[in-house]
């Protein structure tokens, strides 16, 4: 019984320490974002490449997923609203649930699967190949050169792609509102404008930025924990990805609590 308690206590302490470490590390990276010195020519090049890899290369797949998944979702939700006689809540459901909640979540899940996993592996491979040591030997700050551009890219990409996803969903909404409710574009537009809450949109954008920050920071952090053996790569990648999904859940819960309060 005693050893169970001790083990549990040790695990809790380890978890809290890891959480505190991540927050301290996040603070360090966050401060660097606002330092002018961080933005060297090399860093700017990495930033542009990262934005291209994360936001531009993914566009065809992202648009396709948004259109298919978003249209299906909108169709189902509108059908349910009609069946349960909740047509009056149409605008609030569309803006409050689909645009400000589901599109950031869909975006962050897609980017996590595609880019966060890639970043995690890239960092682990660089560590194993001693390329991180190379950068240090040439006095290249790893935070400035590798971390900050990826984190900024995460923030920009999630905010922009989530906005794009919202636009796709709203366009799908136009079609389904006409098909299911026989609603004209003007009526649809008025309902949306009446249901739009500026603070909700701000919270959604802020949430996207937080998502972007952590879904790039956590994989980097775990990737850099790799040892100098290739066998450590799958371990740190799986740990990193589990932690990213935990972070997504925590941020989602916190944003819901913010809305409730």
């Amino acid at each position: 019984m005693m050893s169970f308690g001790e083990n549990l206590g040790r695990r809790v302490i380890q978890m809290l320490t890891a959480f505190a470490d991540t927050i301290v590390f996040a603070g360090k990276v966050f401060i660097r974002i606002f330092r002018r010195k961080t933005y060297s020519s090399a860093m700017r090049e990495v930033l542009l490449n990262q934005i291209y890899f994360t936001s531009v290369q993914i566009l065809p797949v992202f648009l396709m997923v948004s259109i298919i998944f978003g249209s299906l979702l909108i169709g189902i939700v509108f059908q349910l609203l009609k069946e349960f006689g909740l047509t009056g809540f149409f605008g609030h459901v569309l803006m409050g649930l689909i645009v400000t909640e589901l599109s950031p979540l869909l975006t962050v899940l897609l980017i996590t699967l595609r880019s966060a996993a890639a970043i995690n592996t890239e960092m682990a491979v660089m560590k194993v190949n001693r390329e991180i040591k190379t950068l240090e030997m040439f006095r290249i700050d790893v935070i400035n050169y590798l971390l900050v551009p990826r984190v900024i890219n995460g923030i920009i990409s999630i905010v922009l792609l989530s906005s794009l996803c919202s636009i796709v969903l709203l366009v799908s909404g136009t079609l389904f509102s006409w098909l299911i409710f026989g609603m004209s574009i003007d009526v649809y537009k008025n309902i949306l404008l009446n249901a739009t809450n500026f603070s909700d949109i701000l919270i959604a954008l802020f949430k996207c930025a937080i998502y972007g920050f952590f879904i790039t920071l956590i994989p980097i952090r775990f990737g850099l924990r790799a040892s100098h053996e290739f066998t450590s790569i799958p371990i740190v990648v799986s740990q990193g990805m589990v932690n990213v999904f935990a972070a997504i859940l925590i941020i989602e819960v916190l944003s819901l609590l913010t809305k409730l309060l």
Partner: peptide, 8 residues
């Protein structure tokens, strides 16, 4: 050899 080129 301990300070390799960046492979990517």
């Amino acid at each position: 050899v301990d300070v390799p080129l960046i492979s990517n």
